[in-house]
Design a protein around this nucleic acid. Structure first.
Lengths: 238, 238
DNA sequence: CCCACACTTCGGTACCGGCCGAAGCGTTCC
DNA sequence: GGAACGCTTCGGCCGGTACCGAAGTGTGGG
């Protein structure tokens, strides 16, 4: 018999418990790129046996943080929705930066790391120096304001419309939301507008993914478009 | 020798681990009222021995979530800062609502519960129906916008100034932030502006705390002020 | 000066949960 | 059809930790 306890506290504790394991945390961080991973990929990434990660994924799915999709002998898994991604992002943003340091060993690792710092996806929006540059440009042009909160201005809504980026007013998801970048330690545009911008950038060929990682690179046409539409100089993305 | 792991994942897991215990979660939720509690009060609240809660508080302080202050034979403990409060709020907002249900047994409990639903503090800002009414009033008067994010408008900044509520541009804390209310399941005003509004409401006698709980009540002068300044009818707070 | 009180430290217990390897199951490829 | 592959289930091991009561420490009151 368990003593009469607060169910709110129990819910909070069990939710936090889902993330409170290093292996599960590593899976969630990997999945923050917004794409679907197989169980085996996550096991290799986390450095544990396949059987171990299988049990972890079962718990994360049961807890509603992940959605799964079976295809043949593969089990694809991804973050359940934008809410789950926000949860992980928010929590990760509270991790003291000192804990994020990591010794870079090989040249290849250094290359991947600098590409990630330059530009990457963060669930469904753009992050890294690219994300910061976009956010700064939107702010300096009066399309987004960050001084009194975090919201698009009317001019900002117009800009999306005239630029041809559809802003789906999807359900209850906020249009603009701040997401704290962990390499830059500064907020950048997330939410429905951030997702729309990212999708358009990939669709229109402004950016392309590098290899199978979550890093993205700005293409030459993308440089021209960003310069023309937002006055972003290519040097700002170096 | 521990295998080469991601220090980011380790940091995330250990942070979540601080919250991933029902007793610690209960303490954090109790401390969400923004005031300082003694170790004994928290022990009684959580239904565990004093020695148990003592160890938990030690871990929470070491983890940076709580700040402590010793006074004589008492150990006062409170949330370390607005960041820590936001962390707990955010996480609690993701707890499925079904987990929040709780059987109300006594008449006294029902009274406390309805008073809390009417108005309460959430760390340093106002929540409950009172918080929602304030937020709605600010939005309908064009002082706050929620449709494209969450930010004060220029008119909103002016309103605070002319009403005599100082908006300290304190450090990096955002002026306006959305906090999801767990009784109303709707966002209300938090951040520096929410804190300033709450402090002013208590200082000016618009509201007063009920007993030693976190519930607050609107006073008659407060009703007049809220009606005159924001057009909030007393009925909206019923 | 002594007792009551709030809290902490310590020893001990019980339990939960992460991990692995082996075996089992279904899919895909040759 | 058989072999390789990806994943899951199971049993067992191990470490970490939540919990308590009892004893210890320091403060405040009578």
């Amino acid at each position: 018999m368990t003593r009469t306890k607060d169910p709110r506290a129990a819910g909070l504790a069990s939710l936090a418990g889902l993330i409170a394991d290093e292996t599960r945390a590593a899976c969630l961080l990997a999945l923050l790129d917004g794409r679907a991973w197989t169980a085996g990929e996550l096991a290799r990434r986390a450095g544990v046996a396949a059987s171990t990660v299988s049990e972890h994924l079962g718990r994360l799915v049961a807890g509603g943080l992940l959605a799964e999709e079976r295809q043949g002998r593969h089990r694809y898994v991804r973050l359940a929705d934008a809410r789950a991604a926000t949860l992980v992002e928010d929590l990760a943003a509270h991790v003291p930066p000192a804990a994020g340091r990591r010794a870079v060993r090989t040249l290849r690792e250094a290359g991947v790391e600098s590409a990630m710092a330059r530009g990457r996806t963060c669930y469904d929006h753009l992050a890294g120096r690219l994300g910061i540059a976009l956010t700064d440009a939107l702010i300096s042009r009066g399309l987004l304001r960050q001084d009194t909160g975090f919201a698009l201005t009317d001019a900002g809504v117009d800009w999306f419309a005239t630029t041809g980026i559809p802003l789906a007013s999807a359900g209850r998801r906020p249009l603009a939301r701040a997401c704290l970048d962990w390499t830059e330690r500064r907020p950048h545009l997330a939410g429905a507008a951030g997702a729309a911008l990212c999708r358009h950038a990939l669709d229109a060929g402004w950016c392309e993914r590098i290899g199978s990682e979550r890093a993205v690179r700005v293409t030459p046409p993308g440089e021209r478009a960003l310069s023309a539409l937002l006055g972003i100089s290519p040097g700002a993305l170096g």
